[in-house]
Simulated scan of single mutants.
Amino acid sequence: MKKNFVLIILALSFNVAFSQVGINTPNPRGILHTDGQKDNPTSGSSFTPAQQMNDVLITSTGRIGVGTINPAVKVDARNSGNGAIGFGTSSLTASTADEGAVRYNTGMEYSNGNEWLPLLTAQPTVNKVIVIAAKTDNTVKLLNPSALVTTGLQNRASNYLVGWTKAFESNSGNTFNASTGIFTAPRNGVYVASFTTDLAPLAINYTVDPLNPIQIEAIWQLYDNTTGVFATNIVNTVKCVNTMSSNSNGNIDAGSNCTASFYMTTGQRLMPYIWFNLNGLNTAGFSLNNTGGYNNLTIAEQ
């Protein structure tokens, strides 16, 4: 009986004595504390960052510290040394891994419980192109006949919008030629392009003609990566049309806008132009509403 009592006392003493286990350290700061370099202080709670850097610790609350003796989360590897965490590949489905899981499969991915999604952890190697410009004059270029016109826009003609004033351009600053209105893609990618136009009041003066409706078209023309701007160079065309009723005479502005996304390869070119049928008098030229910031252009690389 005495023998059994002694064994119980020894077992309890052993449990108390080893409630904190230190490996290479007599001064463990958690349930399990490993000191890789045996450089921790023998007593006290003051540890330098260098001493903590080679330690691994499990606290009584179930937190793991790698390189730190004060983990703030379940797994904490933040320290003054190499705090990186490596993730391996996994063939588990997202639902099996459950939401919140992270893996590395040719890129960092996380599970939302249904599918693996890419984790965007790095900035692009180049800055994205953004162009902002405004147009404050009536200079346009006509392709047929080819001419630069400064006296106004032409009815029933393709008026290519040139003579922009560049307000901002990121990156190299030379992808958009403000004088020609041509944007050139610096690399393959998706570009979102938008522009707005507004003709000055009194432009609309038309009688009912079912074959020629009153309308204004804002158009983006995508050309190949050569130097020509002819029909043979056109890769894609996107038109945005605004129509007006036949009695839209008087001081009503005729405006339009067009926003489109393009996949462009390096060197391909993008140009904005408008075509309108607003006036049966075939007036020589129409003015843009050049006050109040109505005529603007924005191109953004995605």
Rank of each mutant, 00 (worst) to 15 (best):
A11D: 06
Q123K: 15
A72H: 02
S43D: 06
L10N: 08
S43G: 05
K128E: 08
L270R: 11
V66K: 05
E115W: 07
S261F: 10
G173F: 11
M108H: 15
H33I: 00
I132Q: 06
K166F: 00
T197N: 05
R187K: 10
N112A: 12
V6E: 13
Q20L: 02
V192T: 14
C258G: 07
N159Y: 01
N233I: 00
A147I: 15
E217V: 14
N289A: 11
L7N: 14
L32Y: 01
Q52V: 06
R29N: 09
Y160C: 03
S45E: 09
M264T: 08
N138I: 04
N127T: 15
G67K: 01
G62W: 06
S91N: 14
N155G: 04
G189L: 03
G293L: 04
I299A: 11
V16I: 15
N159W: 02
L222F: 08
A185Q: 14
Q37E: 10
P118N: 00
G44P: 01
S158R: 12
G280I: 03
A134M: 08
G62P: 05
A193T: 04
I252K: 14
T48C: 05
T197C: 04
T121V: 15
A11W: 07
Q51R: 00
E169T: 12
C258T: 05
L57H: 02
S90P: 05
G65C: 09
G280T: 04
M244E: 08
G189C: 03
G181I: 07
N233P: 00
W275R: 15
S256M: 09
Q52S: 14
K166S: 01
Y206N: 12
T207M: 09
S80R: 09
D198S: 14
I9L: 15
L32I: 03
E169P: 12
Y223W: 03
T150M: 02
S245A: 14
I214S: 14
D35V: 02
N171I: 10
N144G: 02
V238G: 08
G280F: 03
T125L: 09
